[in-house]
Design a protein around this nucleic acid. Structure first.
Lengths: 218, 218, 218, 218
DNA sequence: CATGAATGAGCCTTCATTCAT
DNA sequence: AATGAATGAAGGCTCATTCAT
């Protein structure tokens, strides 16, 4: 069933409950790497987590809230790690900034797919207060990240917006019609062109463009 | 019901059958401007087309194939129009090229939303042969477009790839969590930043980058 | 499964559709004689009718609407039969009137149980327009019945109200805790007291009371 | 939460346990005045009582048993009070008897609704032994009440049966399809007819009928 | 005794697809 | 070719009850 080996039968303490919630998120995450949102049923998540279906609803009110939580988590993690990396590297050039922003990009497929969900399906069936909380929290996190970037806040935010759009776009591009005869795949990058390289190139270009003459002392 | 004037008798000739198929696509298109894929049922499409549900399946094997056909159509239309515009304007600068590529961008929301679908849901439940056909056809079209662009084929194709990614990305960005408290909307562009402008800026930057020193005699 | 022997596979004509709808109502009715509303699932109804679950929802929007239709039907039937009986017998005494109103009372258990439902559960999850239609229709029917009773309309309506209340009351009384040791059943009528007789007595008493000096020429 | 002042520690003595049981019944009672049986969850009762869900099951085996206990209590209370009133007033006329039986009728809505439950839902999922006990106990109480009525035991019991039936019937009638267009509400009493008045009238009529020539020395 | 996390059968309902007409 | 009634798997979700703590 699940990978978690031993687990208390009942989550009593707040800590255990957090752990249980985490178990569910981990289960969803595992399935998420191979399955689309529509195909992924709560039943499956429950089975993967080694829990009963009803238990899921003890921790998340709806399927959408579960996945919003997963997105939130991944976003936090990325923002945190990226902020730290800015602090550590203190990049001064567009290339350096882009490099920080793209650090570990190859491991972020789940996050990118979740971001696609956000604009597609997550907005529905989530309690408005939760949606608001998600946004507030995200804003706060982003502000922190912006603070570590070597640009004026407005510029930094614009950079992030472009990153966001590009991230989604290239993610989608990379998923389009997989399994199609590669010979005829033309829009799809040829063998020797890696999508990731293109993404990087684009980001560098846009950062360079936006950053022109706006470097600030951090 | 719909815009189709007369009640459909039997489509006998190939031409009539093509017309019937087109009616269905037009109906789907009308609904598509206001409704998400999941919310849009085959029943609705049938009603909008003034046809019975079963009739749809005479022309399209699955819901996905119907929408793939719609995407194909929009893509064709855009490629054609854009190729013509290249021919007409013969742009020589990145700005000019970007301007051609973004021409009528504001009317392309349905196409952009269909492109999002492609990577999300259209890939499933489509007969492989149809998927292949779609790709072949698209490639052919793209080659034609590439031929009209003032760059080497490889470069031109790269530009198109970036356009594709950005298109999807900004489309998604523009749809994320609407209705959320605007005060806290930070990732979302502030009032005075228009998404479209950012998109344009990014495209120009990337075209400029890719095109550097690669202008060819068309 | 069902008792209906032969049946068209698909109900095409309006008549066949009415028949199919009727099949469902008949199936629900059969189950209703032995099962409580909460215990009676749509699944069971479908099975009993020899149809798929989804088919039920082609004819009734919700479980409640199905049972409201069943109630409506039974009510119609009773009102019609009773109005006819008034016409035929032209009763002039309270006893005669009561006898008409109680005619076939022993076969009306399903109706009585449905009436109990009305005030308990049917009011919820029914489209307001349908509820209104039910009431309008019922009122019209009742007016017709009242027209055949040998009393002024107001008095006749009061009689019906009392009949309604008593019907429900005695029905409930007859259902209370069945299977309980009869020796100790005290509130419950002893062997030699039949509930129905009591019901009749009460109705006669109330009709006599209300009718005192109000006989009209019908 | 509720009206229970202190948070419940452990109920050790029999008295404390009785108190705890009572707390639960009081909580259920409070909710019962505003909520239907189906809508009223054990969770709510627990919360209202300031207890955990599991604790309820220490005192009542099922939801049904909890409500049967509540009914039993209300019935006791009413029987006691009514017996006392007979003793005090010593009514000799049907009007007097009816008046005693209907004393405080306007406060008995919860009891009436519980009686409706009895025939509908309480009969299921209750241990037979408990059902039997309920009946035995009720019989005993009723015998006491009958002893205070100015009729022969059989007659008195018949009066009570009629009261029971009418009580339920008028209760249900008063609840049927609330919120429906009053214009079309025909079965429902018109503005100037009060349900309670009708109920009283009916009871008087039936008592008069049954009591004819059967007055006994109490 | 008390807790409340966990259970899981079962609910009603939807809708892409099929197929008898 | 066209119909639309029928299908039925699958969905998300509820809640009385249990049981490890």
């Amino acid at each position: 069933m699940s990978s978690t080996s031993a687990r208390p039968a009942r989550a009593r303490s707040a800590e255990e409950k957090h752990q249980r919630r985490d178990d569910i998120l981990r289960a969803a995450e595992r399935l998420w790497t191979t399955t689309s949102y529509a195909e992924l049923s709560m039943n499956q998540v429950a089975r993967e987590a080694g829990l009963a279906k009803g238990t899921l609803y003890l921790y998340f009110d709806t399927k959408e809230e579960l996945f919003l939580a997963l997105l939130s988590e991944h976003l936090h993690r990325w923002i945190s790690a990226t902020a730290d990396l800015f602090l550590e590297r203190q990049p001064r050039t567009p290339e350096g900034v882009a490099a920080v922003l793209l650090h570990h990009a190859e491991h972020l497929t789940p996050l990118r797919r979740l971001l696609v969900l956000l604009g597609t399906v997550l907005e529905r069936n989530v309690r408005p207060e939760l949606a608001l909380e998600f946004r507030r929290d995200l804003d706060q996190q982003l502000r922190r990240l912006v603070g570590h970037m070597p640009y004026a806040p407005d510029t930094a935010m614009r950079v992030l917006r472009h990153l966001y759009a590009m991230t989604i776009g290239w993610q989608q591009l990379s998923e389009s019609l997989p399994g199609t005869d590669p010979v005829t795949a033309q829009l799809r990058a040829p063998q020797d062109t890696d999508l990731y390289g293109e993404f990087e190139l684009a980001l560098r270009a846009i950062v360079g463009q936006l950053a022109a003459g706006t470097l600030v002392a951090s």
